[in-house]
C-alpha cells in the first residue's frame, strides 16, 4: 500500500469512528488558559510544514506527559506547523503482548490522529514467532515502518535475530527506525537500567541488506566520535535530530564543525526532523532551525523532504 492510500484509509477509518477532524485548539486553549493561547496561534499547514519522524503515543511508564493525551498532542503538533508525525507507542518498551500494543497504536492514530499520525509498530526479534508480529504490522495494520528498541528489548545489534528482522522488514519494504535511547541514563528509574545501544555492528549487518531504509532515532548522545563517523562513512542510515545538541548544532554538524562531534560531517540529505515529543518539548527541534544559520533548502530538506522521500519509496 502506498502512503496516499494509507492516509486515505486512516481518514476514512477515523471518520467511521466519529473522530473529530476539526482542530480542538479552542477547547484545549481554554483549558490551558489565556496566556497559552496567546503564545501559540493556530498555524495553517503550508509548503513549509514539517514531518516529525519521532513522536510517541500512549502511556510512558515513568511519567504522565503534559501532551500525553493524543488529542492534545495532535493539536500541539498542528499549532507548530507539523503536517505529519510518525508515531510509536510507549507501551512498546515493556509490554510482552506486542501485537496488542501495535493494534492499539493503529487505532489511536486512526481514531484520534486527525489524519496526521502514521503508526510505527514494534517487533521484538527475541520473542517467539516475531515474524507474525511483523506480518501484522505490514498486512493488517498497514504500517509504513517499524520502530525497534534494542536497549529495552534485550538484544545487541550483532545478534542474528536482529539481522533477520532487518532482512524481513526490508523484504516487506518497511522503513526501519532504530531507537538508540529514550532518556538520559542519569535519570532512569533505579530499578530499570537500560543499556546504551552499541551501533558498531551495523556496517557489517547492513552490508547484506543494501535496500534497507534505516533511521537512527534519538542517536546523538551515544553515537559519537568513531562510531558516528562509521555510520556516516560505511552505512546509508539517516539520523533523527531530536538530541542533536550543542550551540548551532544543526549547522555545525552539516559543516563538520560540531563542538564535540568535531570532524564528522552529516549532509542534510541524511538528517530527519524528529522531536521526541511528548517527552521533549516540541519546540526543541524547531528552535534548532532558528539557532543555526541554514539555507532554506537545507531546512526544507531536513524538515520534510527527506521524510517524504523515504515514504515515497513505498
Amino acid at each position: 500500500m502506498d502512503r496516499r492510500r494509507f492516509l486515505e484509509e486512516s481518514v476514512l477509518a477515523a471518520a467511521a469512528l466519529g473522530a473529530p477532524f476539526i482542530s480542538t485548539a479552542p477547547a484545549v486553549g481554554k483549558r490551558r488558559g489565556e496566556a497559552y493561547r496567546q503564545n501559540e496561534q493556530a498555524i495553517p499547514s503550508g509548503d513549509g510544514a514539517v514531518i516529525d519522524t519521532n513522536v510517541h503515543l500512549l502511556c510512558y511508564p515513568f511519567r504522565d506527559f503534559k501532551y500525553g493525551a493524543t488529542e492534545e498532542l495532535v493539536d500541539k503538533l498542528r499549532r507548530h506547523n507539523i503536517k505529519q508525525a510518525w508515531a510509536g507507542s510507549y507501551s512498546s518498551l515493556f509490554h510482552k503482548n506486542i501485537d496488542y500494543v501495535n493494534a492499539r497504536l493503529t487505532r489511536e492514530c486512526r481514531k484520534k490522529g486527525d489524519g496526521m499520525l502514521l503508526p510505527f509498530g514494534t517487533v521484538n526479534p527475541m520473542f517467539p514467532d516475531w515474524k507474525e508480529d511483523l506480518r501484522r504490522c505490514h498486512e493488517e495494520y498497514k504500517m509504513p515502518g517499524i520502530r525497534l528498541y534494542p536497549g529495552y528489548h534485550g538484544y545487541s545489534l550483532e545478534q542474528e535475530p536482529f539481522a533477520s528482522l532487518l532482512r524481513a522488514a526490508t523484504e516487506r519494504n518497511l522503513l526501519v527506525q532504530l531507537v538508540i535511547a529514550m532518556e538520559d541514563e542519569r535519570m532512569q528509574h533505579p530499578l530499570v537500567e537500560v543499556p546504551n545501544v552499541d551501533v558498531s555492528p551495523l556496517p557489517g549487518v547492513l552490508k547484506g541488506i543494501p535496500e534497507i531504509r534505516l533511521q537512527l532515532v534519538h542517536p546523538f548522545r551515544h553515537v559519537r566520535g568513531e562510531r558516528l563517523q562509521l555510520m556516516v562513512d560505511e552505512t546509508g542510515v539517516l539520523f533523527e535530530i531530536s538530541n542533536l545538541d550543542g550551540l548551532g548544532a544543526l549547522g555545525r554538524i552539516i559543516e563538520g564543525d560540531h563542538w564535540y562531534l568535531r570532524d564528522v560531517s552529516i549532509p542534510p540529505e541524511r538528517l530527519l526532523f524528529g522531536s521526541h515529543f511528548p517527552y521533549f518539548p516540541l519546540e526543541n527541534s524547531l528552535f534548532k532551525f532558528m539557532e543555526s544559520p541554514l539555507s532554506k533548502k537545507q531546512a526544507r530538506t531536513i524538515m520534510s523532504k527527506n521524510a517524504e522521500r523515504l515514504l515515497a519509496v513505498q
Partner: peptide, 11 residues
C-alpha cells in the same frame, strides 16, 4: 538569515 520564519512554527 533565518531559514524559517519562527512565528510560522509557533516560535
Amino acid at each position: 538569515n533565518f531559514a524559517i520564519k519562527p512565528e510560522a512554527y509557533g516560535l
